[in-house]
């Protein structure tokens, strides 16, 4: 099945994989951020991403605002809707977590719908904040400035989030609430503000992800939804708790798609995702089993 793998082909598959993985990692940031506070899988992330990107598109392409202003606008709207979702979450403390997760999905559907109404009926791709042209060749692959910019942004944000969570006092409060909300509350930590705040950050991250992802894949809700699901699968490896592992996991998913689907191994049409799915399935099982053991020790 392996047909003449040259170093250059492999290299290009790896590069494609890494940049695909970066897209997933961008989406994973928001998922991990919101899970990190109240253990709810935020399926509102794709909606927030699409809506943020829509606002960005409207501001930059339609109103003609400067790219940076449009970017900030999109991120701000994402944060606002993220905060609203967080507020709704506070009202649902008695709900089973799975139900809250489905609730966040309804939010996504609404945001998809509103984006559809705002956007023109044709498929659009907003301009990249890093400029639409420019780039260089690595091996056989052309790497655009946009890809490099996204990659660097993603690493920076991952490092920043990791730093805030592990090194700052806010991070300590966030982790305390995540471990045991009731105990955190009785120590005087205002739980509600933290949930809303962190979900707002998650919304902002999602919008940023949408803005950086959509120039590459067109602003299609379902494409973004799939990107989110791959991101979810990539970040479950770290139990949705760790930004770093989510980043690595997402890159791994991207790599497996790049290598198994990108011209090295030909499995035939439709099967190029098989490898990625296998990788993800193993990751989920591994994480699930590992977590079960952890839970057992703790009780």
């Amino acid at each position: 099945m392996v047909i003449g793998v040259t170093a250059a082909v492999f290299e290009s598959a790896v590069i494609i994989g890494i940049f695909t993985g970066t897209i997933y990692a961008m989406m994973a940031l928001g998922i991990v951020a919101s899970f990190r506070i109240n253990r709810v899988v935020n399926l509102g992330i794709p909606g927030l991403a699409v809506f943020g990107a829509t606002v960005y598109f409207e501001m930059s392409n339609v109103w003609g605002a400067p790219v940076l202003v449009a970017l900030l606008g999109g991120v701000a709207v994402g944060a606002l809707f993220g905060a609203i979702l967080g507020l709704c979450n506070l009202k649902m403390t008695a709900w089973p977590r799975g139900f809250v997760m489905i609730f966040t999905l309804t939010a996504s559907l609404f945001l998809f719908g509103w984006s559809d109404k705002i956007l023109p009926p044709i498929q659009v791709s907003p301009a990249s904040p890093f400029g639409d042209s420019g780039g260089f060749k690595v091996a056989l692959t052309y790497v655009s400035n946009h890809q490099i910019g996204t990659f660097i942004t993603c690493i920076l944000v991952t490092l920043l989030m990791g730093f805030v969570v592990s090194k700052t006092r806010i991070g300590i409060y966030v982790r305390a609430i995540y471990d045991d909300g009731d105990s955190a509350a009785t120590l005087g930590i205002p739980l509600g503000y933290f949930v809303v705040g962190v979900w707002a950050v998650a919304g902002a991250l999602a919008a940023l992800a949408g803005i950086l992802v959509s120039p590459r894949v067109t602003l299609d809700p379902y494409l973004i939804l799939f990107v989110t699901i791959w991101a979810l699968a990539g970040s479950i490896l770290g139990g949705l708790e760790s930004f770093g592992i989510a980043f690595v996991g997402s890159i791994l998913v991207g790599l497996s798609q790049g290598i198994l689907g990108g011209g090295i191994i030909h499995l035939g049409p439709g099967l190029e995702n098989l490898g990625a799915i296998a990788v993800v399935a193993i990751a989920v099982f591994y994480a699930g089993v590992k977590r079960r053991d952890l839970a057992h020790i703790q009780t």
Binding site: R97, G270, N273, I277, V284, F285, G288
Partner: peptide, 27 residues
């Protein structure tokens, strides 16, 4: 029996995507 709760849900999601992406794309 092995993975439960959130992990089961995500695992089933992966099965959904797997079937959707792999099987349903076979024309």
């Amino acid at each position: 029996l092995v993975v439960t709760g959130l992990y089961f849900t995500v695992a089933s999601l992966v099965v959904q995507i797997g079937i959707e992406k792999v099987v349903f794309s076979v024309g």
